[in-house]
């Protein structure tokens, strides 16, 4: 159990040292995040110039959703997506052979090889937005809500990881799935709003098919005192299922890998 964690830390350090060489990228990322934040705020302003509340969510509450969305986007961009894109590329080009020769768990190695620390700027921006939103909310945030928020974030992150692993594993069968990143980015945009505003079929898809509801809306519900313990328990249960299922699917996929030289 400890070994994967040690490996993760090691790869994290290597990745961080690598990225730290390119310090100008920090400022570029900050600029990019600021532009996105500005656009997001403009949209919120536009909506609330027309209506006092969106389906029961007030302006600070929607700001909290936006903050969580940016934060989780930073986690995905820094920790999850880079390794998954590398995995997809390696499978396609046959260089996945090199991973297979390592005496470690293939899934663990495949999931931690690449990080982009500057994408983590969004984690900080997201936290700032969440902080601003919480300070505007009428009810103050108690310790239970804070713990619920933390737990919901971790559970949501694990689900997004499982989802990325699932869709990347498809690369073992279908050669060109480069557009998967665009597909995910597009779907992820829906998390900018609480999933409760979507029609039933879409809400169900965004909850169980693509776990964006769990990744963004549930943590935001924790912040806005809407989260009940049973929803959190359901999220935890679903995360466990997603982790097991994605691992099983990855193993099936592995057996279909034919390598570069065959």
């Amino acid at each position: 159990m400890l070994r994967p964690l040690r490996l993760t830390w090691l790869f994290f350090r290597i990745g961080a040292l690598n990225d730290l060489q390119y310090r100008a990228n920090f400022w570029l990322q900050l600029l990019q995040s600021t532009i996105q934040l500005g656009t997001g705020l403009a949209v919120l302003g536009l909506i609330f110039s027309q209506t006092p509340a969106l389906n029961g969510w007030s302006q600070p509450e929607l700001l909290a959703v936006m903050g969580v969305h940016i934060l989780m986007g930073g986690v995905i961009g820094a920790l999850i997506q880079p390794s998954m894109e590398r995995l997809r590329q390696d499978i396609r080009e046959g260089t996945f052979d090199f991973v297979l020769t390592k005496p470690e768990d293939i899934q663990v190695i495949s999931s931690i090889r690449e990080i982009r620390i500057w994408q983590g700027v969004d984690v900080i921006v997201g936290l700032v937005v969440v902080g601003l939103a919480v300070s505007q909310l009428r009810e103050s945030l108690g310790p239970i809500e804070a713990i619920g928020f933390g737990l919901a974030l971790v559970i949501g992150g694990l689900m997004i990881y499982s989802f990325w692993l699932l869709i990347t594993t498809v690369a073992f069968w279908i050669v060109r799935i480069d557009e998967i990143a665009e597909l995910f980015q597009g779907l992820y945009q829906s998390g900018r709003w609480p999933v409760t505003i979507y029609p039933d079929w879409l809400r169900a898809s965004l909850t169980f098919l693509v776990p964006i509801a769990f990744a963004v809306t549930v943590p935001a519900q924790a912040l806005t005192s809407r989260l009940t313990p049973d929803v959190l328990a359901l999220a935890a249960g679903f995360a466990a299922v997603a982790l097991i299922a994605s691992r099983a699917f990855f193993r099936v996929g592995l057996r279909h890998y034919s390598g570069a030289s065959s």
């Binding site: 209506t51 969106l54 060109r176 799935i177 557009e179 665009e182 597009g186 945009q189």
Partner: peptide
Amino acid sequence: VANYMFMLGMVAEPVIYLVVWSTVAAQQ
């Protein structure tokens, strides 16, 4: 498949706007 993935990712954007603004319209 790649084309469809790209397109589905892209269709998400207007569907989100559509739902948000239809909600606002319904409330107003």
